[in-house]
Design a protein around this nucleic acid. Structure first.
Lengths: 190, 190
DNA sequence: AACTATTCTTGCCTAATGACAAGATTTCTC
DNA sequence: GAGAAATCTTGTCATTAGGCAAGAATAGTT
């Protein structure tokens, strides 16, 4: 099936035996959500991690005044994992909303833990995802400190151009840590 | 031995059998470094993760112009883990330098992987540390976007007061993402 | 197509922070 | 404890980005 290609791509190359691979694959359920639906809602406990088959998602948190601050965008093939809530089973502060209709693979914590215990290669895979997320976040924080908004804008434009096809400038601005007016002016300059 | 108290505190409560606990403890080597020494140097491959027994450390990266940007401070009991370099065995961009003489427990990757494979409780422990680090980093990034410098200063002052005893204002300023002059003015206001 | 809502741009003014440099203060070293 | 080095403060001025509000442009809806 076409959709499973993503799981093969993600998990097919990490050195699992054929049958173990099948078990792991079976642990995923396919789910669909509509544009505007929430995949994760602030205050709830995240029940699974996801791999995005198709569509586009945006995550955000609310600041003190209730304004949305966009924390990330997720495109096809991305792993969607709110670590703190998923692993600790605590209410999350994050919201993840579908910007377009989305199809995803989902795996719940029990299944995950089971497979994690059984398969070393799967553990490696999970760990490397966590590490990559951490690394990306560190880079983002660093960039917030050292680069000015226009530089962050250009960097994002060249590293993740898909975002600009699907997200509004308002949300991109908030992801960059600036207001939409400022982003508009920056774009005018360039 | 007094130092081992930290390991007991970290690892004693995670539900390991007595003998497994002993094996894990034995995997640590004690190391000492002097004030001004580097625990981790940019460009090198990190060979272990550490638990700080005593002393104070500061991590930083260099920006484009070669200026230090302080990324964190580490106090007694903290876990010191440069995930990307340790797990992926790639050269790190981070530097970690001893602000005071330090004593640490260290565990290398092979030993870690071994124990990680054998003991589920140890896996849990490692995972929860990664998750906590990620969470803290997310909070920091969020704060960089939503709070102004003076608020970040006050938040740091109340959440991690030890830092103000041991780090210079210059380094604290850079951790907060501002210049030392700005920090000086902020402190004057308050 | 007409209406509405949302997004995006722009103007004007203000606030926050940086850059640079000069002193003041503290710390370190011999 | 004298001198050097690093740290911290302060002043002046420039730059960046925000707040607010009004239009322009776009998308969504019936």
């Amino acid at each position: 099936m076409r959709c499973e290609g993503i799981l093969y791509k993600e998990l097919g190359e990490i050195g699992l035996k054929q049958e173990d691979f099948k078990t792991i694959i079976k642990g995923y359920k396919k789910i669909k959500i509509k544009k505007g639906d929430y995949l994760i809602k602030s205050g709830s406990i995240v029940k699974g991690y996801y791999i995005l088959i198709s569509g586009f998602l945006r995550s955000f948190v609310l600041d003190f005044d209730g304004n949305e601050v966009t924390t990330n965008f997720m495109v096809k093939n991305d792993l969607i994992l709110e670590e703190n809530s998923f692993f600790m089973q605590m209410p999350t502060k994050e919201n993840i909303i579908a910007v377009e209709d989305c199809v995803l693979w989902m795996k719940d914590l029990d299944t995950f833990n089971n497979h994690f215990r059984l398969y070393e290669a799967y553990r490696e895979w999970g760990r490397s995802h966590l590490v990559r997320n951490l690394f990306a976040l560190k880079e983002r924080t660093f960039s917030m400190i050292t680069d000015k908004a226009s530089e962050r804008y250009l960097a994002l434009l060249s590293s993740r151009p898909e975002i600009f096809q699907k997200a509004s400038l308002k949300h991109i601005a908030s992801f960059l840590g600036i207001t939409d007016s400022s982003l508009s002016r920056i774009r005018k300059e360039i």
